[in-house]
């Protein structure tokens, strides 16, 4: 899929207010049973070393400025992977008082500040399954094709004319 991520993906894990379930699955996927490290995926300590940012949680107000700092510190090309229902669409927190409601709102804010994000990937699920994370890695590295149901394909064709 993406030309620039054929090799090892180094990721920085950004918990933006999630309940830990997704975060634990991220750790889980790196340990012997699922072993995502065989794809070269590695958690790194600083966003400055990262190719991709793993984002979990609906982005709380308190975390927002820190998240923007971390995203800005990531070198281009920048990839944002939204993991779990909260992050993808805000989940049940989509309109609560102390969150901004998921990655789409965050992208709007980033656009306003002229911080570019080159690719955004979505992994839905509450919590995400380790298999889904591995599938996403495959997708990012171009090992598997994107699965789209024929209904969605038709709808996309219709809207794009």
């Amino acid at each position: 899929m993406s030309k620039f991520l054929k090799k090892s993906i180094w990721v920085f894990h950004l918990n933006t207010g999630s309940c830990n379930a997704c975060d634990i699955e991220i750790l889980d996927v790196l340990t012997p049973y699922f072993d995502a490290e065989r794809f070269g995926v590695k958690l790194v300590a600083s966003p400055r070393h990262a190719d991709a940012l793993l984002m979990t949680g609906p982005v709380t107000l308190e975390a927002l400025p820190k998240v923007i700092n971390a995203i800005e510190a990531t070198p281009r090309p920048r990839i944002l992977i939204a993991m779990g229902s909260c992050s993808v669409g805000g989940g049940i927190w989509h309109d609560t008082y102390s969150t901004i409601g998921g990655v789409r709102e965050l992208l709007k804010i980033l656009k306003e500040r002229e911080i570019e994000v080159d690719h955004v990937y979505y992994i839905p699920g509450c919590p995400i399954r380790p298999e889904a994370i591995i599938y996403a890695i495959g997708l990012i590295k171009g090992l598997v094709e994107k699965k789209i149901s024929s209904k969605v394909k038709k709808a996309v064709r219709r809207t794009s004319g």
């Binding site: 975390a63 049940i92 927190w93 609560t96 969150t99």
Partner: peptide
Amino acid sequence: GFHVHRGIEKL
């Protein structure tokens, strides 16, 4: 702390 305050009680 309190970076993860999501307003769960109010919800």
